[in-house]
Amino acid sequence: MNIDKSKVFSVIVSYNPEIENLSRLVTELKKQGVVPIIVDNGTLSEQDSNKLLLVCHVILLNDNAGIAKAQNVGIDYCRKKGGEFIIFFDQDSDIDISFVDSLLSDYIEVCESGVGKIATIGPVFTDSRYGFFYKLIKLNRYGLRKKINPQYESKPFEVSLIISSGSLIPINVIDEVGYMDEKLFIDYVDTEWCLRAIAKGYKVYVATSARMSHAIGDKMVHLFGFNVPVHSPFRRYYRIRNALLFSRMRHVPLAMKIRDNLFNIIHQFILIITQDNKVAYFKTMVKAIRDGILNK
């Protein structure tokens, strides 16, 4: 199995990005033979947009339509340009010189192993601040979780959920599984898509040869041996609301619905107790619960 790199596009979603970081990512992707596309959620100035247009194609949305909408716009553009694969990135993603080759190599290895239809494959992540490996999740049919530490894996392995940053998806898979769910806006977009793909008979894999660093949340709260990520009240709204929207989706396992809704509320109370803007976190929780129940 061979992959023509000229048919591999990357879609980078930006929102108030640091231009130098974004330019560095685009430059590195071009060096690795991938066609980079930036979809900006209504924040790039004309000056910054013109600077980026010198090195890649830029699609400017009128306002913040959310990561799912931006990804879907990017998918449509890549499809029109004859793309066959898309690698999604966040605006702050940082990759090494062998990232694309490593990801494609592991994807080909999995495809040739005969395990079945592959929806997506993503890299192993380490925390950019603390250096630990992010564990991956494999769900059983009821949604009970098994955590896998990628540090001890030497070959690509199957999981149930990966984050979108660094993930490779064939466009023909999107034809069957569908686009990203725009009503989710940001949180759970990648999770929902992975579960939808699995429900349609696909598999999700992690490429042990491809690695990226990543930081979840603005910072961490260390409590009873656990690292609790701190997101803004704005982000926490979508986390709580979308978990409730998940409860209506048939392809989301029951145990996951129960666990995520319960843990989201516990998480929110930890933030209310430990963070300075307690009122904002409390109001966010109330609004998210209301909107989630009312399916707004």
Rank of each mutant, 00 (worst) to 15 (best):
K147Q: 08
F88G: 02
W193A: 00
A197L: 01
I87L: 02
I38D: 07
G225D: 09
D92V: 05
Y152V: 06
I137V: 14
E18L: 04
I12P: 02
F224S: 13
I162V: 07
R141H: 11
F224I: 13
E182P: 05
L139W: 08
K135H: 10
P229Y: 08
D218S: 04
H57V: 07
I148L: 03
L22W: 09
M1H: 10
C78L: 04
A68Y: 10
S247L: 04
D40W: 09
I19Y: 04
Q275L: 15
L262M: 14
S49I: 08
I171G: 06
K30L: 14
D4H: 06
I266R: 07
F246V: 00
K203V: 13
K135P: 02
I162H: 02
Y77P: 07
L244W: 02
Y281S: 09
A65D: 09
L144W: 15
R235G: 15
Y15D: 00
E109S: 15
I75G: 01
G225H: 11
Q268H: 06
Q275N: 13
G166N: 08
T27E: 05
R141V: 14
F132A: 03
V252M: 08
R141C: 10
S113L: 14
Y188P: 00
L195A: 06
L25C: 03
K31V: 15
Q47V: 15
M285S: 14
A210P: 15
L223M: 15
V13N: 00
D76F: 01
R235K: 14
Q47D: 11
N50K: 15
K203R: 11
N41P: 11
V8A: 05
R24H: 05
F9C: 05
I37T: 10
R235C: 07
F133M: 09
Y237G: 10
S167P: 07
D40E: 11
L262I: 13
L44S: 08
N72R: 02
V189H: 02
L44D: 07
M249D: 04
I198Q: 04
N149E: 07
R241V: 13
Y134L: 03
S23G: 09
M256R: 11
F224R: 12
Y281M: 05
I169F: 03
Y15S: 01
D90A: 04
S165K: 02
K155F: 14
S213G: 11
D4F: 09
D181E: 14
V13Y: 03
H214P: 09
Y152A: 06
E46D: 14
E192A: 03
R196L: 02
P36D: 06
I86T: 01
D190P: 00
M256F: 12
A255Y: 12
Y142G: 09
P36R: 03
I163E: 02
E176C: 05
I12Q: 01
N41E: 11
G225R: 09
I37N: 06
D106Y: 13
F269H: 14
N41M: 11
K203H: 12
I67N: 08
S10L: 01
D181Y: 10
E20K: 08
D218P: 02
G66L: 10
N140K: 13
A243D: 02
G122F: 00
I59Q: 04
L195C: 11
S160C: 01
F224E: 13
W193E: 00
R290D: 12
R211I: 15
D63K: 08
F263R: 08
R259W: 06
S165W: 02
L60R: 14
I95S: 06
Y281K: 07
V55L: 13
V58S: 03
P253Q: 12
D187A: 01
D96C: 12
Y179K: 04
